[in-house]
Amino acid sequence: MTLLFGLFGLFALAAAACGDDSSPTATSSNSNGGEITVLAAASLTDAFRELGVAFQTANPATKVTFSFGASSTLVTQINQGAPADVFASADLANMDKLTGAGGAGAAGTPIAFATNKLQIIVGKGNPRGMAGPADLAKPGVVYVTAAPAVPIGKYAQQVLDKAKVVVTPKSLEADVRAVVNKVTLGEADAGIVYATDVKAAGDKAAGVTIPDDVNVLATYPIAVIKATKNAPAANAFIAYVTSAPGQAILATFGFAKP
């Protein structure tokens, strides 16, 4: 019992020590305004990593930290008070959760900076010989998608609705990259993802084109979060994303201009 008390005491001391340490660092990072945190949709992972490197080369004093995930997850985190400066969503609905009632709010109006089309992702060499959305309903095809709140989950359902295909997914994954992984690992046969994700998967997967009349154009908005402690750097990052060099980087990953 004494040991137990002692342990709790140690924890309390450790916690107190950490609390004391953190305050000076927090003020020092604010003083020169050199750090921002960007929360971005999972489908932007590779493009934004490269964009971040280019941005930091152009602005050596600024340090950018990224966190990627489902736009729905990220906006929940922001609205719960996660310290972040910029939010890039894969759809307008999740951006609305930031700017709408009960949201953490944006500084200024969100700007659309990229668009993306959807494709069916299949295993390397398309072993099931898929040709279009209708083949997803073929017996024995393991189809996975994302939860309905996640942008890709909603877009994928829109494609299926337009194509009048009824298919029950085997799983509702957390974000688009989880869908890609299930296919590249061979656990699932197909999923509907962004064209940029198929491209990013390289030779581990193949893409099947979804005809334009049933395809969906995903629009990506970006905004500075109202609670930012570093508005100049956050605005500079968004300016870079929408600038010619920023758009050129996005284009190499397969994103189109809005």
């Binding site: 489902a70 729905s72 997850t73 939860a147 709140a149 996640v150 799983s171 509702l172 957390a174």
Partner: peptide, 27 residues
């Protein structure tokens, strides 16, 4: 569970999974 078994109502969506997903759609 979510990594290995995935997440789908009635087959693999257990209470912790539904809680995690509801946090986004319906807190």
């Amino acid at each position: 569970t979510i990594t290995f078994a995935g997440n789908f109502p009635r087959t693999t969506q257990t209470l912790p999974l539904v809680t995690y997903l509801k946090l986004e759609s319906n807190p």
